[in-house]
Every structure is written in structure tokens, then in C-alpha cells.
Amino acid sequence: MEADRSNREGLMGWLNPGRYGWERVSYWLQRLTGVGLLAYFIGHVFETSSLTQGPDAWAAMLELTQTPLGHTILLLVIGMSTYHSANGIRLIFAHGGKGLGKPGRPDYPYDAVSLNYRQKSGIWIALILAAVAMLYGASVLFGGE
């Protein structure tokens, strides 16, 4: 019997990450922040390249970032980079098999050892660090004169 090949979730599978637990949320955030940081990197290269067109062009470009929208984007970049770095360090170790526990003899209710408290704590630490960095960033960006 010929099967219908169009049953892949594709990128739609990324939606509703909460249904598989914190590790899936972390995966989703890591990818999202990665894409966000790549977009920022491209924008940043474009911004700094204005230096080649003289001081006036550079000053005009800088003015764009000195607006509430510019500050909000920078705040998001602070949060994204902090989360991506902290969670990335956790993932480097996890990808090397560190901090995951040892294989054993599974017993009911078959909780997975790799989805342990160390991994969950790592995700929470990354989220808290990102929130703290964003709060500090907000106090500097929006709290000044």
C-alpha cells in the first residue's frame, strides 16, 4: 500500500514546545536565540560598516540605536546572548555525555536518567542569568538621564 509522505511535522513541530518538557523548551529557545543573534550579527556588521562612509554616516547610524525601539532590541540581544551562552555551555558538556547519569537497569515508571535535575537546573540557571542580565541592561539603557 502506498503511503502518504506528507506527514512530517517540519518546522510546525517546533510550535508548542511545552508538551515535551523543559529540555524541549530549552532546545526551542536555543534555536530561536541562535537565529536572533545571527540576525543581530548581520545588522551589527551593517551598522559598523557605516564607519567607512565617514563620521556623519556613523553618527546617523548610532542615532537609530538611541531610540526606545533600538534600546528594546539591544535588551533582547543581551537576553539572547546570555541565554545562548549559558545554555550552550550546558549543552557542550551534555553532548559529550557529561552530567547525564549512567545507563542502568530501567524499572517502572521508566524515568529517563538523562532528563535529570542537573540538566533542568542548567536550563533554569541560563534562564535566570538571562533575566538578570536583561534587568541590568534595562536599568542602564532606560534608567539613565
Partner: peptide, 15 residues
């Protein structure tokens, strides 16, 4: 990328 979803749905504890 270690999303862990495979282990969370495994009914036999294979992880």
C-alpha cells in the same frame, strides 16, 4: 541537539 523529547516519550525507559 539533545531536545530530550525521545527520552521523555519512551515507554520502556530506553532513554
Amino acid at each position: 541537539h539533545f531536545a530530550g523529547s525521545c527520552s521523555s516519550v519512551c515507554p520502556k525507559g530506553v532513554d
